[in-house]
């Protein structure tokens, strides 16, 4: 297994290199550039824009620009944002904790709710609980996250008020109340974005686990366990769940990169300063260094998550053999 892991890791080097070339070309061949909005400004002369492009090195041949960028990346320097004139490393570092908090907590909430829901639904299929959960998860899967986000704002920010103070129940618009930076305040701000983000995930994961669990419950070893008189909980949680959860592990591992990449819709609706918005703003403004930095790291994480999923699969299921 170690040999397998090492081999997979070595394979990522050429893959990442190819990805970097493709990404660089894709980003650069997209129409427009970092100075497009300046071109539209009637008070900016075209000569000024050309001088600035020259100054920023945007007129150099693409291979030269790629070499300059890659040279930096290899030494851990993602370059400087064209728009903000700040190191990309610093801009990404600022956003990572915010994104980890939002997506991490949502992930945790998702797992804490989705696993019991999935198991209980499978245990008593077609019961009232199962039907209720099917309805809820169906809604959760169908509601677009931006609609849900707006709905939550209207209900919990505008309509419902705190009965004691008359203020809103949950805040929107950022991570902290102005002038406060304590954890409790941040958690209070986290409630609505996490709710918006996790509902869809809960629906998706619990449905997945439910069907996986129902498949497993018909397996011979479950019947055997039942027949030899194992306690019901042992049957469900020790024998069945361990096997039923296997496919879910792959799913979770593949969703892990979003811990870094962020969640654009939720971040936008709740003004959460995370990676999703950093990426989107950079994409809109064609801020090449920021855009490439975020996308490259995300690509690397997706590859890493894939390897992790494969390894975890083998660890959880000894039947899987690595060649």
């Amino acid at each position: 297994m170690t040999a397998y892991a090492v081999r997979r890791l070595l394979q990522t080097i050429p893959i990442l290199f190819i990805i970097s070339v493709i990404l660089f070309l894709l980003v650069r061949t997209a129409p427009g550039g970092p100075l497009t909005s300046a071109r539209r400004n009637p008070n900016v002369t075209k000569e000024q824009i050309e001088a600035l492009e020259e100054k920023l090195g945007l007129n150099d041949p693409l291979p030269v620009q790629y070499g300059r960028w890659m040279g930096g990346v290899l030494t851990g320097n993602l370059g400087e944002s064209i728009k903000f004139r700040r190191p990309v490393n610093e801009m990404i570092a600022e956003r990572i904790p915010n994104t980890l908090l939002l997506v991490g907590v949502s992930f945790l909430v998702t797992l804490l709710l989705a696993i019991p829901i999935g198991v209980l639904s499978a245990r008593k299929p077609y019961s009232f609980f199962d039907y209720a959960m099917t309805t809820v998860t169906f809604i959760g899967q169908s509601i677009p996250v931006y609609w849900l986000g707006l709905g939550l704002i209207v209900v919990f920010y505008i309509t419902l008020k705190n009965p004691f103070t008359g203020a809103h129940l949950f805040p929107v618009g950022g991570m902290n109340t102005q002038g406060k930076s304590d954890l409790l305040d941040t958690l209070w701000h986290l409630v609505l974005p996490v709710a918006a983000l996790s509902l869809g995930w809960i629906a998706w994961y619990s449905r997945f686990l439910r069907s996986s669990m129902m498949d497993v419950l018909h397996e011979d070893y479950v019947r055997t366990a039942k027949a030899k008189g194992a306690k019901e909980n042992v049957v469900y949680y020790k024998h069945a769940l361990r096997n039923a959860i296997l496919p879910l592990v792959t799913l979770i591992a593949l969703d892990l990169p979003s811990l870094f990449a962020g969640a654009l819709f939720v971040e936008t609706i709740f003004a959460w300063p995370g990676m999703g918005r950093l990426f989107w703003d950079a994409a809109k403004g064609r801020d090449y260094p920021v855009l490439l930095g975020v996308v490259m790291i995300t690509a690397a994480l997706i590859i890493a998550a894939n390897i992790l999923a494969d390894l975890a699969y083998g660890w959880l299921n000894p039947q899987v053999k690595y060649e």
Binding site: L150, I153, Y157, G173, A271
Partner: peptide, 21 residues
């Protein structure tokens, strides 16, 4: 003065409704 970055138009209006901005 506090300038708050709120990209979503509906959330902006909601904040005005609650007197937060």
């Amino acid at each position: 003065l506090v300038f708050r970055v709120v990209p979503e138009p509906a959330a902006q209006t909601a904040m005005m409704m609650n007197g937060e901005a």
